[in-house]
Design a protein around this nucleic acid. Structure first.
Lengths: 344, 344
DNA sequence: GATCGACGTGTAATCGATTTCTTGGGGGAT
DNA sequence: ATCCCCCAAGAAATCGATTACACGTCGATC
């Protein structure tokens, strides 16, 4: 592979001049042409590693996501990637697989690679490396998930409005015994969703007893299935379940299906996260749609603000309820506008 | 951030010694301890950029995938990531968004970053940069998709057996007028699936007329929907459709749904790629499952072989038919073993 | 016509590591 | 006691770029 010295020799100039031509500085037209010709003839491409070493800028952002196979995260990653690319950055995606050790491992790798900034949708709350990121001075922005004790802006969705609408929806359909599948207590996102849901239900005189709060450590189908199994084995099973993640909902559906139970007749189901196939499920699933792409975009902008030393605030964007048929027939009254994607 | 010089000073040794301690060479126990203590106290972590510049190895593999939001690719990426990580490499995922220009852009970026090897599931066939990868000497392995004229091993799935089973399945269920949604002619993967399907059908005396071959340039739901629309508007519409990608199937389902048509009564549907939600679709979808994770693993091994200068062959792994209910009730006779994932 | 600026270009330092070459000291053999 | 060998550790070159500084040339100004 040709390097800058080869180009300099061929063009009969110094390496400094080549560098200047390529970076848009000073040289006069004729010299510039000679250099560009040499670049073309040799097929020269600057070595980014060397450049990064010298300039201490890699032009790379890191993104840690909880689970690469979770559609919510892939949409998020896709949006982040789009935005980063359009702003001239490239993106390294780190897949934490919802395991804190793997996440720490990845953060370490990214720091060693001198990325310019880091976006983290953290698995778990006890990440030792996140503290190190902060002390290392690498710009950090949290995405979707707050981490207690980490002083960094957080870009995420606010479920209050959607959960309020959901409680009204369930109440209107006569569901009196709701349940929720969440991450274990202590997980900020899970705790918050539980709290907001409970509050919203209370406004309709509906209780959410502890027996109807099912926690699962892994945000995976198996966990959702186990919780649904426990719910169904209760002396008085719930008549509606909110799964706070699309993968857990998949598991919950597996269990219902295995028992021959129907949605919504035997059990209403609502899913946090909006995924394209939900409208093709049997029946189409009522869901809480987070503004995923907007979150991704906002996160990149917030991170760039930090990188450039500007002020960077936390961002909170509203989620909304998308009513379909998994809680019974919609009333059409208190229901928010349906997603345009549903107009099939 | 502390660098190797700071560590050397603190430990009272030269930078060379620090480097040797960290890379497992020579130094005597007592010196080693002093160095390690200094490393610990300063929280030193080697700068990977500098190391990469000197050693000409970045410990990074690149993976270009067609579409980050396509579950087939994310599962593939996840498998590749897993395997790469377990072998000590980290992975940069490039999302081509099924656009050749964006793909070229990404390949360029990755080459500039001096990745050690590249896996490409190419969007389109006319990638100028792929040629450059080969001439640049960067080890290259194609994944899932062949690219004519590019001399590199290819790791992909073989659909012959699955399509043979599918033809039998359709014939047994009395479907006489099948159709297929594929990428445009000239796309190797699409052409091959079309050819194999047609051959397999012919063995049962079933024709696949050109009117029943619908091409869509974008492997997206909209494309699948448009093709399905055209099929349904034919004077004699097909009674079974094979969508050669899960996203196109989603679009096809959208169109059926919009017209109030039922699967399988009004139309049988089979999908290439196996995605977890298929078993929750209405009705559960019969699919052709590619050995996705195995493909990812094999691709990494093949790439590492090339990187280490060993022999590297192309790999072909069999896909298999997963029979569910979207073609009508399975007969249970000529049907292969169902996927264990279906045992819900 | 001499002097001063401005500007284009080259020289060399630098980023932070690895690695080759060199040096010096300790230990074993004679 | 002397010599030699070996090995640990330091000095310095190197990877490929960017960039501060120095220098030479040319045009403008008086």
């Amino acid at each position: 592979m040709a390097n800058i010295k080869d180009v300099a020799e061929r063009a009969g100039v110094s390496v400094a001049t080549v560098s200047r031509v390529l970076n848009g500085n000073s040289p006069v037209a004729e010299t510039r042409e000679r250099v560009l010709a040499a670049v073309r003839e040799l097929g020269y491409r600057p070595n980014n590693v060397a450049r990064a070493l010298r300039t201490a800028r890699t032009g790379t952002l890191g993104l840690i996501i909880g689970d690469l196979t979770n559609p919510f995260f892939t949409e998020l990653a896709d949006a982040v990637e789009d935005e980063a690319r359009s702003l001239g950055y490239s993106l390294v995606i780190g897949n934490a697989g919802e395991r804190p050790e793997q996440q720490d491992d990845y953060i370490r790798t990214l720091l060693d690679r001198q990325i310019d900034g880091l976006l983290v949708s953290s698995a778990g709350t006890g990440s030792a490396m996140l503290g190190e990121v902060v002390t290392s001075g690498t710009p950090l922005v949290l995405l979707d998930r707050i981490v207690p004790g980490i002083d960094a802006p957080c870009v995420r969705a606010d479920g209050r409005e959607a959960l309020t609408d959901l409680a009204a929806h369930l109440a209107a359909l006569g569901r009196r015994r709701p349940a929720i599948i969440v991450a274990p207590a202590g997980t900020p996102t899970g705790d918050e969703r539980l709290r907001l849901f409970r509050t919203a239900l209370a406004a309709h005189g509906i209780a959410l007893p502890d027996a109807c709060v099912g926690a699962t450590p892994d945000l995976q189908p198996t966990g959702g299935r186990a919780v649904m199994r426990a719910f169904l084995d209760l002396p008085e099973p719930p008549d509606a379940v909110l799964a706070t993640d699309n993968l857990m909902a998949l598991g919950a559906m597996d269990e219902l299906r295995a028992r021959g139970l129907r949605i919504p007749e035997d059990m209403a189901l609502v899913v946090y996260d909006e995924v394209p196939w939900f409208r093709h499920a049997a029946p189409p699933l009522t869901a809480i749609a987070q503004p995923t792409r907007e979150l991704g975009r906002a996160a990149v902008h917030t991170l760039l603000a930090r990188i450039e030393g500007r002020e960077a605030e936390s961002v909170l964007l509203p989620a909304r309820l998308v009513t379909r048929h998994s809680c019974g027939e919609p009333t059409g009254s208190r229901v928010p506008v349906p997603s345009p994607a549903d107009a099939v």
